[in-house]
Design a protein around this nucleic acid. Structure first.
Lengths: 105, 105, 105, 105
DNA sequence: CAAGAATTATGAACCC
DNA sequence: GGGTTCATAATTCTTG
């Protein structure tokens, strides 16, 4: 079941890994494809930075909203509603109504 | 948002419900076993209340830990570690070291 | 509330604990109030076990609901609604309506 | 679920709104600067969409990592570690060891 | 077993 | 600035 070529308990793989190191430009370090790992991590970090920048922008807008006199919590609620309501046009609404009626809600 | 618990458009369903109730102790409402549903929901709600009470107790203990000078985050980490199998802990630590080394950290 | 504050299998620590306790009722280990920490952790673990037991009970009820033919997802939704709706009897509802009207929602 | 976006009981507010609109291009609705609010909400929604797109990209990378045989949980841990100050990492590790020793783990 | 939902934990923000 | 609530991140569980 191990898709995992780098499972430490996988002796055959580890041996193969050592064998590859001499011939393989993949820069294995201790059986780990270091370059691949580094690439993955750096791409994630980069995207997370962008995400953080967007989060900061959003925060700025809420600060602006607040200083314009809006109740930020309610504005958030509005945004949530606008996200949810199209999703509520679902087949489950029927079922929900049915159950609510059964409960007298 | 609905002020009225009973929608006046429900006359047909209500009539059917009455009809079924006469013949069926299961108190069907619109084809739903209302009593069964109600029982399920109320039992879940009761258990969730108990769960919440326990969660509050746990929170109190962490507050106590904090005011006794412990680092709550690390205490949580300890609890997490104790929950894991020792072998599992070992495995993760090994892998972490391996990756760190591959990255030169 | 903890019945067994000392694990008998932990001989070294227990010995050290006794040694320090002679001079210090706080049973410090490396500057840490070990007994206090242990008590905190064990109480949390005990409560978490109870929490887990309740979670399992809840899971069982949902399994029962499913085999009785209810749509579990919708039942969850009902429970959520019953939790939220009393909270929506809030002063913020007015503001929310106001904003919605301003947006033509 | 309200079909009518405008409550007829709001005549006074509507009148006030019209009065303000004459003097103020801000298009007040019920005392709310509707355009301003709409602008805030739409800008937030736009940024949140971008945020979601980035989150999806990150998810893809972790999926790639997994299929390359890396332990995703440990990769996340690495990323978390790289985000922290080295001194902070050191501090937490020290504390963890201290607590573990105090508990005889 | 992969995708998605739901729960839990951590971190940020706001009020007092 | 401390504590409490809110929001996000992450893990776990369920389901197709």
């Amino acid at each position: 079941m191990s898709d995992a070529p780098f499972d430490t308990s996988d002796k055959a793989a580890a041996a193969e890994s050592r064998a590859r190191q001499a011939a393989d430009p993949e820069s294995d370090v201790g059986g780990i494809a270091a370059d691949r790992l580094r690439s993955i991590i750096e791409r994630v970090e980069r995207l997370e930075e962008e995400r953080k920048a967007l989060a900061d922008d959003i925060k700025d807008i809420f600060a602006e909203a607040k200083s314009a006199g809006f109740d930020v919590k309610v504005v958030r609620q509005i945004i949530r509603l606008r996200k949810q309501e199209p999703a509520e046009v679902e087949e489950q609404e029927t079922l929900l109504d049915l159950y609510r009626r059964a409960l007298g809600m």
